[in-house]
Design a protein around this nucleic acid. Structure first.
Lengths: 224, 224
DNA sequence: TAATGTGAAACCGTTCACAGCT
DNA sequence: AGCTGTGAACGGTTTCACATTA
């Protein structure tokens, strides 16, 4: 794939907390720490430190400390970090606690997989609806979500008011669908189509191109 | 997701070409240019320039020129780039032309989608085999690839000698499977399990964590 | 003593601006 | 005149090293 990220700005806003400006890679790492912290919580661990956390996600202890101090997480010198407190803190920064609503567009094999994927709701995401243009799929329930006609898109966006859209449509349709969801009030798009969407500046988009990912992997092997 | 990349080194080696050291983001962008160039080829365009190419993938003309000059691509001053020549040049750098073989491990819904995904072969990748631990799936053909028992993994790796492995298994099994494929000679892993694999340094790994991707998207929206 | 938090240095990638071809 | 190729400036992230605190 290529996970290429648009949108330049960041800038914290709410919560009576410390500011700091998180870089895109830093946000990615926070998400990884968050994952590992929940694993630690599940196994009953109550504290950790920058060295161990770093080892878990393959980054240096210095990076861990910089990341965590930048969100104002108070570790304890000489001791480390409290797992529960840290998990909660990172969760607050990443927007856990908010119940995000997403719609999925395109119920091909990838769309199907995404509908069945349990792992979104663990992080506070719910799939409000799924859409396709194939009438044979209308009304079918996949992974707890019912597939509807793409003609109903605007209606559903207006009533359910989801914030996110996941695009799993063929690349020829991607731009068109992106325009429609943005017009309908969607604020961020996770795009699986191998197309660079041309959207208004400031629109949050993350692209995941599976073929491009593999290509980059091959490049690295070739230039070992 | 998180598309986090391991492996530090790069360093060109073969081909009597210009050196330059490509950064990870640069490689990602080359992959995008490559995609767009083929689109241009298909529509009969014969030349382009840094401004237009940049517009297609949302980067500045300066970045395009830097990227292309770093692979020694000879554009023509005052004119631009020849689409066919440029596509070929980038393809050579990215390892198109090499017929990469990959195996897929884990034929759940995501694995299924990956097997059906046409888009890998366009870039020179072929799926040599797919594996699962569910006997009900053995022998079934999905997207042109037959599913086999995971017990056969080592045998297939030894005979087909694939370079890449795509992991679409539950996270509990991911580390174990990664160890097995690496022992079997696999050189790079595309990992979809939400786990940071602990592997020998220098191993090429690209992680694609769909939930983490969504989480990062939500973060950006929240901090608009 | 142990491990955080953080200035300051080092590093890397992007942007600028212009010389050099065509 | 137009657009590439690239040295040099810039900006931002990572690394280093150490003062700080439990």
């Amino acid at each position: 794939m290529n996970t290429d990220h648009e949108t330049s700005d960041s800038g914290g806003s709410d919560e009576g907390d410390r500011r700091a400006e998180l870089s895109t890679p830093a946000v990615g790492r926070l998400s990884l720490y968050y994952r590992e912290l929940h694993r630690l919580l599940a196994s009953g661990e109550t504290s950790t430190n920058s060295r161990d956390l770093g080892a878990m996600v393959n980054v240096s202890p210095a990076v861990v400390r910089r990341d965590l101090s930048s969100i104002g997480s108070i570790g304890r010198r000489g001791v480390g970090y409290d797992v529960a407190i840290l998990a909660e803190r990172i969760g607050a920064v990443l927007g856990s606690g908010v119940q995000w609503k997403a719609v999925l567009i395109g119920v091909g094999s990838l769309g199907n997989a995404l509908l069945r994927y349990r792992g979104f709701e663990r992080l506070g995401f719910s799939l409000a609806a799924a859409f396709d243009t194939d009438p044979a799929k209308y009304g079918h329930e996949v992974g707890g979500t019912t597939v509807r006609s793409l003609d109903d898109l605007e209606e559903v966006l207006a009533t359910a008011k989801p914030e996110l859209a996941i695009l799993a449509v063929p690349s020829e349709q991607a731009s068109q669908v992106a325009t429609r969801v943005l017009a309908g009030g969607i604020q961020g798009i996770l795009n699986f189509a191998p197309t660079t969407l041309r959207v208004p500046p400031g629109t949050a988009i993350i692209n995941v191109d599976l073929a491009s990912e593999l290509q980059q992997l091959a490049f690295r092997i070739q230039n070992r």
